[in-house]
Design a protein around this nucleic acid. Structure first.
Lengths: 226, 226
DNA sequence: GTCATATTGTTTTCTGGTAAGCATATTTTC
DNA sequence: GAAAATATGCTTACCAGAAAACAATATGAC
């Protein structure tokens, strides 16, 4: 996940945050890593941000925050981290990864009849209360259209999806039909067929052969802003 | 996240709050940081407010509150903070967990026709994505009943309310009627009367004299778990 | 009205972050 | 093993923001 330099820099920032409370400036990082210019640091920082190990405010001095540390931190280092903050361990070290990972990627929009727009590389994220997340991988989609309006899912809502290939009967899922059309629908299995049922009288339930339908995830949460 | 000055000032305010119960004035802060003018303090305070470390009331003397402390306060200082006072610990540790999720109090349930159950002292909290919150104070309510179902607000949903006494026409608000009945409704002002309109054909719009209705807050967000 | 507190403005200085260009390792891929 | 992609190193230059100082108002408290 990280290169040596990126990793070293991340640990440095984390260390400094814990010892001083203030993150190092680019110049200080430059010195600490033994570089002669800041631009290298700039690129490392950019990578770390892209990979969501740190978060920052653009154009602000020392506006860096460590979001998480890499999982594979060597044992000795982990030991160190652990001893650094026994009581407040929740915010230090890798435990963050497990329970506090509250940002999930926003993959795009979903609407009846149109495929998801591929936004994945744009690196957009949505923050979600962690109690909304269960096990496994989650992502978010923006709902477009009114096909699920009777289930209280409105145009513009953000839905939280747990990645999964299976589904219980009657669950609301993200389903891929014929490999290109993605919809958010209630799913039922009836006599060897799969029914995708919208929650809007103006739309029709589609009954399809199981081969044509691939479940991509299960609806686990919904967020709406007014 | 913070520069040295910002960080020092934040700790100073926190310390004074805990030892005296009263935040320092601008002048006192100026002296404590060894500045020769208050304007610097003003700017530091502004940055701290921007970054949501403190909250303040405009035009009020010493109206500063510490919302949270930086994630990576050095251990010794944290130790101090822990021993000094529990006052703000809930808040700070809560937001430490996940910077992007703030915890707001869950005051109880709200339903057409029945008052909010007072849960306030039970100290229940709900975590919400920070981008759902605007300025001011927020709280959460659990929706009971189906009176707003056509607005996509279902039984069991959690609504996020921004405390406020006023409202725009057509907004969904928490309204207190005759001092005892609390409902979540769309509000309209018509010819000197106030209309509280449910989003369900089976319920009726109430038209009341303005004196009988007190707006308690404005709907700003909604959370649902499946 | 007076005093203490807050807000706003301007200027200057300096630190810190951004950016582009080019060179050099290092890793990946075929 | 060579080509390609990625990561890193270094330089220079530029610009934005942080900070300090001083001044002038505005506002709330009493």
């Amino acid at each position: 996940m990280l290169t040596r330099k990126q990793y070293d820099l991340l640990l440095l920032i984390d260390k400094r945050l814990k010892s001083d409370g203030v993150p190092p400036s680019f110049d200080e990082m430059k010195d600490a890593l033994g570089l002669k210019s800041k631009s290298g640091i700039h690129r490392l920082i950019t990578s770390l941000e892209e990979r969501r190990f740190i978060r920052r405010l653009p154009h602000k001095a020392r506006a860096i925050e460590v979001v998480r540390l890499p999982e594979n931190t060597p044992e000795e280092e982990k030991e160190l981290l652990r001893n650094n903050g026994t009581r407040f361990r929740m915010n230090s070290s890798a435990s963050i990864i497990a329970d506090n990972n509250t940002e999930i990627p926003l993959y795009g929009k979903i609407a009846a009849g149109t495929p998801i727009e591929a936004l994945r590389d744009e690196n957009e994220f949505v923050s979600v209360p962690q109690n909304m997340l269960g096990m496994g991988e989650h992502y978010a989609l923006k709902v477009e259209g009114d096909s699920m309006i009777e289930a209280g899912i409105l145009n513009g809502d953000t839905v939280v999806i747990q990645r999964s290939n299976s589904s219980e009967n009657g669950a609301i899922v993200v389903a891929l039909v014929d490999g290109y059309e993605v919809t958010l629908k209630r799913i039922y299995c009836r006599q060897g067929k799969v029914a995708l049922e919208p929650a809007n009288k103006n739309y029709e339930t589609k009954v399809l052969a199981p081969e044509r339908v691939a479940v991509q995830g299960r609806l686990v949460g919904l967020l709406r802003n007014y």
